[in-house]
């Protein structure tokens, strides 16, 4: 618009100036201002962002052109041309400033966007880490729960074992005490410790000669045995009859069996279960002394009552 309005005017001015051959047909500063103004006008940045400044500059250019056209003095034209040129520069500077400010605003938005993305990424990562941690923690907790259960179980097991051990120890002590006690009592029956266990020997004197009947002393001795056995119902006995070598072997065998049975029957009579008693006759096969002397033969004529080892138990004392 300004251009349209003032272009013919400037043409007239140029024509007028051309008429005066002595004067330069252009003013250098004004020419610069005009040309700068034209390029600023064609710059959309300036027209859009510095319209007021550009308008102001346009007016200044027109005033200078008008002054030149009117033939005002050189100082006035110089002054107006200078001001016009500087105003064009101001418009351009303002346009640059606004452009940069818009850039800042736009880039600011972009930066915020980038920051948002960065934060989102961070938050996602943090969330993932947190999820993983939670899962790990859960696993960890389950593990420790299992371990605790296991520990409780094994502790209970340990307690139980310890209790069992204590019981076993107590029982062992008790058993030992019982064994000692039984051994003590068997010793009172003149039992002897042998490889087969405690052995009580009922001598020949407790039987009538060549008879299977217990004498009164023998019955008394068997009574002691019966007391012992009723006191310890787990104990079993083996009763073995023996003879010397005088007489026939068959006779001796039979005699030994009868004597063993006599003791067995005596025990049964005194209330000992027959299943706890084994009786057998060994005849003259197991002498403990020589058969060549009367004393030796008397030792050989005997009934041995054997309490085998290990036939006792913790409950036997009841």
């Amino acid at each position: 618009m300004l251009k349209n309005r003032f272009f013919p005017l400037s043409l007239i001015a140029v024509a007028v100036l051309a008429g005066c051959s002595s004067m330069p047909n252009t003013h250098p500063t004004l020419a610069t201002a005009t040309s700068n103004y034209e390029s600023a006008r064609s710059n959309p940045q300036v027209t859009r962002l510095a319209p007021l400044e550009l308008h102001d500059a346009g007016n200044a250019v027109s005033r200078a052109q008008a002054a030149l056209a009117k033939g005002d003095n050189a100082a006035t034209v110089d002054q107006l041309a200078y001001i016009a040129k500087q105003k064009v520069a101001i418009a351009e500077a303002v346009a640059k400033q606004k452009t940069a400010e818009q850039d800042v605003a736009n880039i600011g938005a972009e930066r915020n966007q980038a920051r948002l993305q960065a934060r989102t990424a961070e938050a996602d990562a943090a969330q993932q880490t947190a999820d993983r941690r939670a899962a790990e923690l859960k696993t960890e907790r389950a593990k420790s729960e299992a371990a605790r259960t296991q520990l409780a179980l094994s502790q209970r097991e340990g307690d139980r074992k310890a209790a069992a051990l204590t019981t076993a120890e107590a029982k062992a002590v008790q058993d030992q005490a019982l064994i000692d006690q039984q051994d003590e009592q068997l010793k009172a029956l003149h039992a002897k410790k042998t490889e087969r266990g405690m052995v009580v020997t009922l001598g020949d004197v407790l039987f009538n000669t060549d008879k299977a009947k217990l004498s009164a002393g023998g019955i008394a001795n068997v009574g002691k045995l019966a007391d012992f056995m009723s006191k310890y119902p787990q104990r079993r006995v083996i009763i073995e009859g023996n003879t010397d070598s005088r007489g026939s072997e068959r006779h001796n065998q039979a005699l030994s069996e009868r004597r063993a049975d006599a003791v067995k029957n005596a025990l049964i009579d005194m209330g000992i279960g027959s299943d706890r008693i084994t009786a057998r006759g060994l005849g003259e096969s197991s002498p403990v002394a020589t058969n060549d002397s009367a004393a030796g033969r008397q030792l050989n004529r005997r009934v041995e009552i054997i309490f085998p080892n290990g036939s006792t138990s913790a409950n036997s004392a009841q």
Partner: peptide
């Protein structure tokens, strides 16, 4: 007056451009 205005506008423009560079 006009040169001072130009100085101010130029200074603001340079500052704004620097700020834009920094943000970029």
């Amino acid at each position: 007056e006009v040169d001072a205005k130009l100085a101010a506008a130029t200074a603001r423009s340079v500052k704004a451009q620097k700020a834009a560079e920094t943000v970029k």
